[in-house]
Structure formats: C-alpha cells, structure tokens
Simulated assay, not measured.
Amino acid sequence: MTSILSSLLGSWALHAHASPTPSTTVPWWLDPDARIDAIARAAQALGWSARNTFDAEDPDGWDLEILADPHLAMVVRVVGVVVPLSEPSASSDMIADAWRVLGLTAPPPKGAIGCHLVAVEPHLAAARDDTEVEAAVEEWLAANPWRGVSDPKTWARAPKPLPRNASGRVFPGMGLIARIAAA
C-alpha cells in the first residue's frame, strides 16, 4: 500500500505546478476544491480513475474515490493546514491537529482502503525576497515532520516569483503527507 501512496504523491508532485493558479490573492492549493482536483488529476495521470465525492453536508465523509485497479478501491480525505514558517514549533502542532481531525472521518466503505492526506501550506508573513523564503523553507523541510517520518510525503515548490497575497504573505509551495486510515 505504501507504494501506491508513494506513486500517487509522486504523480501529484509532478503535476502540481500545472494546476490553475488564481491571478490574484492566493495560490490554488489554498482552495479545498482545487486541492482535491489536483489529487484526482494525479491519480488519473497514473491511469487510475478518480471521482470527487466531497459533500459539504458530511464533514466526516471522504473527499475522493480512486480506483487504482479493478481490485483496489481507495477513498481519500484531505485536510489543509496553513503553517507559518516563522514559528518552527507551530508546524508539528498544527499537523498533529490535522491528523486528529482526519481521525474523526467515518471508516472507509467495505472493500475500500482509506487514505488520509494532510495538505501542508506554509507561508511567511513577510520576506525581503524569494532567497530569504527559500532559506526558511529549507530549514523547515529539514525539521520535523519531514525528516524521519515513515509516512509517504512529498513537497512541491511554487514557481518563481513566489506567490504573495495582497497582505504580502508568501506561499512557497505545498506538501502532502499520506497515511492509511484505520478501518
């Protein structure tokens, strides 16, 4: 199962830059629907079928259904976490909170494997230039939860110039961390 998650994350990382970016304000990955669509496109690029099953009326439900082959159905739930890079300790706490939220998800349907994805969206409130942001990202990636974690994970850098919103927050990319959900 880890190889399937790694394949999905690898495909997502290759295709993440091709996702539509709003021309103003913030990058696409801050939009929950766009995140789900990007993961569905990554699955489809692997030859799998994917269907968005998000239901705003069902907060404990699954966001995406993927058929990797006729014998392997997977349901996916994605939770986004915006992590300030200026506060190193915030990263682990916020990601731990995301895992707790994902733990409230209903069990996967019979015959399906559940997959939890944490979409990690780092930002800096202010930065002089992209070089300063990249240094902060490298320091962050070297720290937990990215180093020494057995869960499959990947990081996709934002294209330069790094996107900033109207208030000057810098969004240097997005990470995905995956784990199999308890049945």
Rank of each mutant, 00 (worst) to 15 (best):
A135W: 06
D97Y: 10
A183H: 13
V83T: 06
A181P: 03
A50R: 01
A125L: 10
P108E: 12
P122Y: 02
D129W: 04
E65T: 11
V76P: 09
G47T: 10
V81C: 15
T105L: 03
I66F: 11
L124H: 10
P27D: 12
L9D: 05
W28D: 05
L72W: 11
G114I: 05
L176P: 12
K153R: 07
A135T: 09
P70V: 03
L64D: 04
S92T: 14
M1A: 03
A16T: 12
E87Q: 08
S19N: 13
G111M: 10
A98L: 08
G114Q: 04
A68M: 04
R147Y: 11
V118W: 05
D69I: 13
P152W: 00
I39C: 01
A42K: 00
F171V: 10
A16Y: 00
P32S: 05
G61A: 07
G80P: 08
K160N: 06
R51T: 14
A158Y: 00
L85G: 01
P20K: 09
V149W: 01
I4P: 00
G114D: 14
L85I: 15
A112Y: 14
A90G: 04
G61W: 05
D93Q: 08
W12D: 03
S49E: 05
P88C: 14
I180T: 13
P32L: 08
L124Y: 04
S11Y: 07
L141P: 02
N52W: 12
E132G: 13
H116Y: 15
A18D: 14
V133D: 00
K110W: 15
L5T: 04
I95H: 03
W146N: 09
R169A: 12
P20I: 09
D31H: 05
K153Q: 04
A68P: 03
Q44A: 11
W140R: 02
L176D: 07
A183I: 11
H15E: 07
L67Y: 09
S7T: 00
Q44M: 09
M174I: 15
L8R: 13
T24A: 12
W28C: 05
L141F: 10
W140G: 00
E121T: 02
D151E: 05
W146C: 08
V82H: 12
G175F: 12
G175I: 12
P159R: 10
P70N: 05
L72G: 05
I177T: 06
A43L: 02
R35V: 11
G173L: 04
V79E: 07
V81F: 00
M1P: 10
L117S: 00
T24Q: 14
P70W: 09
E65F: 08
W146D: 00
N144E: 10
P59I: 13
W140E: 00
R169C: 12
W48S: 06
H15I: 02
